[in-house]
Design a protein around this nucleic acid. Structure first.
Length: 423
RNA sequence: GUGGGUGUAGCUCAGUUGGUUAGAGCGCCGGACUGUGGCUCCGGAGGUCGCGGGUUCGAGUCCCGUUACCCACCCCA
């Protein structure tokens, strides 16, 4: 049997798992302050949820989904992102009745069949947040602020990040702009790569993302949506920027920022961090999707959200020297001099644990010296030693690891004595 | 899907123009007048040299294939 985890997946070993718990805990505390509540949706959905929500022509749907048939023949897909599922759940459970606002966040694994590289896995972990029901620009600023503050909170300095911002317009102004860009591409077909030409019909705006130097040069001269937004979109965009300015959150307007998921409208944003990352430098991103709920058959409901990548965030944190808290693994180590007192030691450790004190003991009949070394490694502040002498007297020796002071206490008072010692 | 790089002890890596029992550091275990830590010293365990062919008297060292991982393109968190 091959014991290696499947390509593109990774076991979250203790250090990484602790980091994940730290980030999710940080998200819980921070997002709660912004009024968001947790939500968990299934790891797989009917394929249609993603196919229609994200867009048939997108890379994610056309070539990166883990799609399979279950035993009853249903076509299911492992979620490649979280927004479509949350919106589907909001529709199913009417989380956004007329005039209300649903503020939700989630955390968990996502799946995309891609070639793994630095910061890109087939199973990767995201924390995301969605605000459904509000069209006002203030929500855009709130969501972006939550994302930005999250990164700052986990220790990525603002100087190491940059927030890219753009508006993609809406149903009123985007179609016209799209046609304009398509026409522009048509005029410069000769100078553009095959991929850009191929996307002329499906998604011409993606040509702005093309890293082919020739394409980039041509697209640099293309008309910008920013200059052709309809009045409402232009006003909305200006308002979002004003709110961000007021919050003191720095952003860079990036007219060429075009997200790869079809559902985005108006505000789109991305946070990039260079230090520690490879070419996958987007640690978080998102945008507004005012037409998504309707696309699923619901009433027109505005909304927006973001997702941030756990693995990439961790890389950026490490590069910034940010650390994950790692509490001592044991407050107390209960050591035994020989096997004759194994039962006594076990009882003492159990009593400590029942009393809420993290206690560890030896299970391998190791030497006392080895037990002390272990106590040291675990960060134990005290060691309780029990040997034949102590056992015979119904006592234990209690050693304060920092002062090296030792004293004998009755077994019955060990818990209280340690409570006092540990403070 | 395309391209490049790398696969030697648990981890990070050395291994000379192919030549006898494959090494180091860290980690782990044990010991330093035998019931005690963080330092130091000593000792020990631990390796199908990714896998399969081939060349050769002889391959970790050369050739071919294969597989895994890494990085990049692409795309995205």
């Amino acid at each position: 049997m091959d014991v290696r985890a499947p390509k593109g997946t990774a076991d979250m070993l203790p250090d990484t798992a602790r980091a994940w718990e730290h980030l999710t805990r940080t998200a819980q505390e921070l997002f709660a302050r912004y009024g968001y509540e947790p939500v968990y949706t299934p790891l797989f959905e009917h394929t249609e949820v993603f196919a229609r929500g994200i867009g048939e022509a997108t890379d994610i749907v056309s070539k990166e989904m883990y799609t399979f048939a279950d035993r009853a023949g249903r076509s299911l897909t492992l979620r490649p992102e979280g927004t479509a599922s949350v919106v589907r759940a909001a529709l199913e459970h009417t989380l956004v009745p007329q005039g209300s606002l649903a503020k939700l966040y989630y955390a968990g694994p996502m799946f995309r069949y891609e070639r793994p590289q630095k910061g890109r896995m087939r199973q990767f972990w995201q924390i995301g947040l969605e605000a459904l029901g509000a069209a006002e620009p203030g929500v855009d600023a709130e969501v972006i602020a939550a994302l930005w503050r999250f990164f700052e909170t986990v220790g990525i300095p603002a100087d190491n990040m940059r927030l890219l911002l753009n508006s993609m317009g809406d149903d009123v102004c985007r179609p016209g702009y799209r046609a304009t860009v398509a026409a522009y591409i048509g005029e410069h077909a000769e100078a553009l790569c095959a991929e850009c030409n191929r996307r002329l019909d499906t998604n011409p705006l993606r040509a702005f993302d093309c890293k082919n130097p020739a394409c980039a040069q041509v697209m640099a001269g293309a008309p910008l949506l920013r200059d052709e937004l309809c009045e409402p979109c232009a006003t909305h965009y200006a308002e979002v920027k004003a709110r961000l300015d007021a919050l003191g959150i720095p952003y860079v307007e990036e007219p060429k920022l075009v997200r790869g998921l079809d559902y985005y409208t108006r505000t789109v944003f991305e946070v990039q961090a260079d230090a520690g990352l490879g070419s996958q430098n987007a640690i978080g991103g998102g945008g507004r999707y005012d037409g998504l709920m309707e696309m699923f058959g619901g009433k027109p409901t505005p909304g927006l959200g973001f997702a941030l990548g756990f693995e990439r965030t961790l890389l950026a944190m490490e590069a910034a020297g940010a650390t994950v808290p790692s509490p001592p693994r044991a407050d107390v180590y209960v050591a035994r001099v020989d096997e004759s007192v194994a039962a006594v030691v076990f009882d003492v450790a159990s009593a400590l644990r029942d009393a809420g004190i993290a206690a560890e003991l030896d299970h391998q009949a190791r030497s006392l010296k080895a037990q002390f070394k272990q106590a040291d490694r675990l960060g134990a502040r005290a060691v309780v030693v029990v040997g034949p002498d102590e056992a015979a007297a119904g006592e234990a020796t209690l050693r304060d690891m920092s002062t090296k002071e030792e004293r004998r206490v009755a077994l019955a008072t060990v818990v209280d004595a340690l409570r006092a010692l540990l403070g």
